[in-house]
């Protein structure tokens, strides 16, 4: 049951990802990205990370994607890009991506097998996550992230000002 759901969600997510990179209109790409992120959130739930899934929807689909759409609309970006011709870079890029993908999958297949272990009832809940996040090991990283976010905020504001 879990596997079926996982395959469904994942397949949909991959399909949506494919749409993202193939649409000419940025708007369509953005919408496909939203879909992809939603399906990934489904995978997170299956992987017993409900809180991460929730945040995925809230932060990514809710906030980040809105930003994207906002920019797309602000700049009135229509489908001004024909789908790329297969230039040398594109060709090399595709081949490379193929190599990277195949090699990685093969690599993973050799290394990893077997089912997941059992987990406790609290696994993946917001409480557990908070406990992990705030324990000594991750505290510094958390603070670093907060500084990073603040900096990005300030940077975005500065960059967005009319006269730079």
């Amino acid at each position: 049951m879990e596997l079926v759901l996982f395959v469904l969600f994942s397949g949909a997510a991959l399909a949506a990802a494919g749409v993202v990179v193939t649409r000419t209109r940025p708007f369509s790409a953005a919408m496909a990205l939203v879909a992809c992120l939603f399906f990934l959130a489904g995978d997170y739930v299956i992987l017993q990370a409900p809180f991460v899934a929730a945040l995925q929807i809230l932060v990514y689909a809710g906030a980040i994607l809105v930003l994207f759409l906002f920019v797309v609309m602000l700049l009135r970006l229509e489908g001004d890009e024909a789908l790329p011709r297969l230039g040398p870079r594109q060709a090399v890029g595709l081949v490379l991506a193929g190599i990277v993908g195949c090699a990685s999958v093969a690599f993973a297949a050799f290394e990893v097998s077997g089912p997941f272990p059992e987990t406790g009832p609290l696994f993946g809940t917001a409480d557990a996550l908070a406990a992990t996040l705030l324990d000594g090991r991750n505290l510094l990283a958390l603070e670093g992230i907060s500084v990073l976010l603040t900096t990005a905020l300030v940077g975005a504001v500065v960059l967005g000002r009319k006269e730079l």
């Binding site: 870079r89 090399v92 690599f107």
Partner: peptide, 19 residues
Amino acid sequence: QDYALGIALGAAFLLLLAA
């Protein structure tokens, strides 16, 4: 994107090496 291609080339090479 040429830079990114360079990065990808390097990554692919390392991966192949590891494989």
